[in-house]
């Protein structure tokens, strides 16, 4: 069982890393033949960096658009990033306990956010219309990951040292010490996480790397000053 999980995680990691790298290369290689920033847009590169920063950190456009979605989305994402940051301690020892300790409540932000988004998907007619089964499935998957994780943190504690030893062994290919604590909640948690990693590069989760490549947000508004021509267009 421990070995099966190890293999699952090797495969999942490979798919995630190679898949996302492939997509990022594909995006950066595809030319953007025309200047199409949504204006008013910044006229300098540093302005564009600021615009992107506001989009990624504050979800600026979403904020202007639909406040309830913004509240839940922001709670979920910020909760998620805090949770992921806290998970760093299973992989190395650098994270100071003062930060890591209180951050565990971020899981609630994440879960509340996810529930809000899920309810919205059911309850708002327009949003229900545009939802495919996979859109619900993805929210439920994340919700189950969040809930199973929180079970371990807040209800029935798991042997953290054991988890760390296991992943140390996993990372150093030390197959003799691959012993996963026999906690069923942990196994559910890990299995779901592996699924998430596997679907990441083939689903809408590509929005995380993709946003940086969106030409309506990442282009500088200077078409009159700087001539912008794509390679394939040059040949015409």
């Amino acid at each position: 069982m421990s070995l099966a999980f190890a293999i699952l995680f090797y495969v999942a990691t490979l798919v995630l890393v190679v898949g996302v790298a492939f997509k990022v290369v594909q995006y950066s290689k595809t030319p953007a033949p025309l200047k199409i920033p949504t204006t008013p847009a910044p006229t300098t590169t540093s302005g564009v960096v600021m615009r992107m920063f506001r989009e990624v950190v504050f979800f600026e456009s979403l904020f202007k658009s639909t406040i309830w979605t913004w509240i839940f989305a922001w709670a979920f994402h910020m909760g998620l990033f805090a949770v992921l940051f806290r998970h760093g301690r299973y992989f190395h020892d650098l994270l100071p306990a003062v930060i890591v300790g209180p951050l565990k409540y971020a899981a609630f932000a994440m879960i509340i956010g996810l529930i809000g988004l899920l309810v919205r998907r059911f309850a708002v007619n327009r949003v229900r219309y545009i939802s495919a089964p996979s859109d619900y499935a993805m929210l439920i998957l994340l919700l189950l990951i969040g809930i199973s994780g929180s079970m371990m943190t807040f209800v029935s504690h798991v042997d953290i040292v054991g988890v760390k030893t296991y992943f140390d062994a996993w990372m150093t290919l030390d197959f003799d010490n691959l012993i996963l604590p026999p906690d069923p909640v942990l196994r559910i948690h890990l299995f779901l996480v592996a699924v998430l990693m596997l679907i990441f590069p083939i689903s809408k989760l590509l929005h995380a790397p993709g946003i940086f490549f969106s030409p309506t947000r990442n282009q500088v508004d200077n078409p009159r000053e700087v001539r912008h021509v794509a390679e394939w267009a040059e040949k015409l």
Binding site: V124, G210, P215
Partner: peptide, 17 residues
Amino acid sequence: KYRGLRVFMDICVKCGS
């Protein structure tokens, strides 16, 4: 040929906004 098209096809999260 169009990065916009490629990226937009992939990344919509169906947020509905």
